[in-house]
Amino acid sequence: MNSDFPRILTLLRKERGISQKQAAAELNISQALLSHYEKGIRECGLDFVVRTADFYGVSCDYLLGRSPERTGATLSVDDLPESDTAADNRLSRGSILPVLNKKLIVNSLTITFDLLQKLDQNAVTTEVSNYLMLSVYHMFRMLYRINPKNESNLFTIPQNISSQMTTAQMIQCEARLRSMIENTENKKEYKFDHEKLSISTESLQQNYAQLTSSLLNLIKNSEGLLK
């Protein structure tokens, strides 16, 4: 059994709000055996995996850590939703600051990823994407910590080292990207068509009329933080 199974097994039980004794009774095993499964001390059989998946209403792939989706679905680009209208409406009824900052960031990211698509360099896209995903992961995890009752089993990396590991990996992403852009160590491997990324405020306005003001404001706000 893989290392994700004990973590997810524990997470599902705690999310359901039941004790080990209750879960064990429902799953027709002893509490001691369930404790061993949750701690990763013993491995279970396939029949227990199926029974547990049915009990918690998830797929076996989710239970085994093979899919982040409870249904076990593997997402394609077409499956990914656009902006959550319901969430946008909730934000608009509250403080204006989250609404404003979300629009600045989302619109700026739209421009960023369109430029990446024009550049058409998978290695560059990977490093930029990984850096941004790690940043969001890090901030989400900080917010998750605010409520001490939130289950730590949602994450595989322990809290006491996640911040350092995230920062280190973001630094590596930036270093690899810098190496590609500066064309030093990888002079032969990476040859960019510079004209594809010929950028000016005028070209931004022409190509992204509705989004450019968000990007320019994000740049202004960010540089204000650096002064």
Rank of each mutant, 00 (worst) to 15 (best):
L143S: 12
K103C: 02
K191A: 11
Q31C: 14
T166E: 07
E151G: 10
Q210H: 14
R7I: 08
I18N: 08
Q20M: 15
M142L: 10
R66L: 14
L225C: 11
D4C: 11
F140H: 06
A168C: 10
D84Y: 06
D88E: 13
G40Q: 08
C173M: 04
S198K: 12
L218E: 00
P148S: 04
S179L: 01
K14T: 10
R93H: 01
V99R: 06
L33E: 07
L154Y: 11
E151N: 15
A32E: 13
A25N: 09
K149D: 06
S59W: 05
E202R: 12
S83Q: 08
E182S: 11
L115R: 06
V49L: 15
D4P: 08
N122Q: 06
I171Q: 11
R90V: 07
S67Q: 03
T71R: 06
L215G: 01
S163H: 09
A24M: 13
R7C: 04
A25C: 09
A24Y: 08
N147A: 11
I18L: 14
F155Y: 12
P81G: 07
A32V: 15
L116I: 12
L218R: 01
R42C: 06
Q22P: 12
N122C: 04
T166S: 14
M142F: 05
S214C: 10
S198N: 12
E195N: 13
Q205T: 14
L115E: 03
D54S: 14
L215D: 00
C44P: 09
I41L: 13
S67F: 05
Q22V: 15
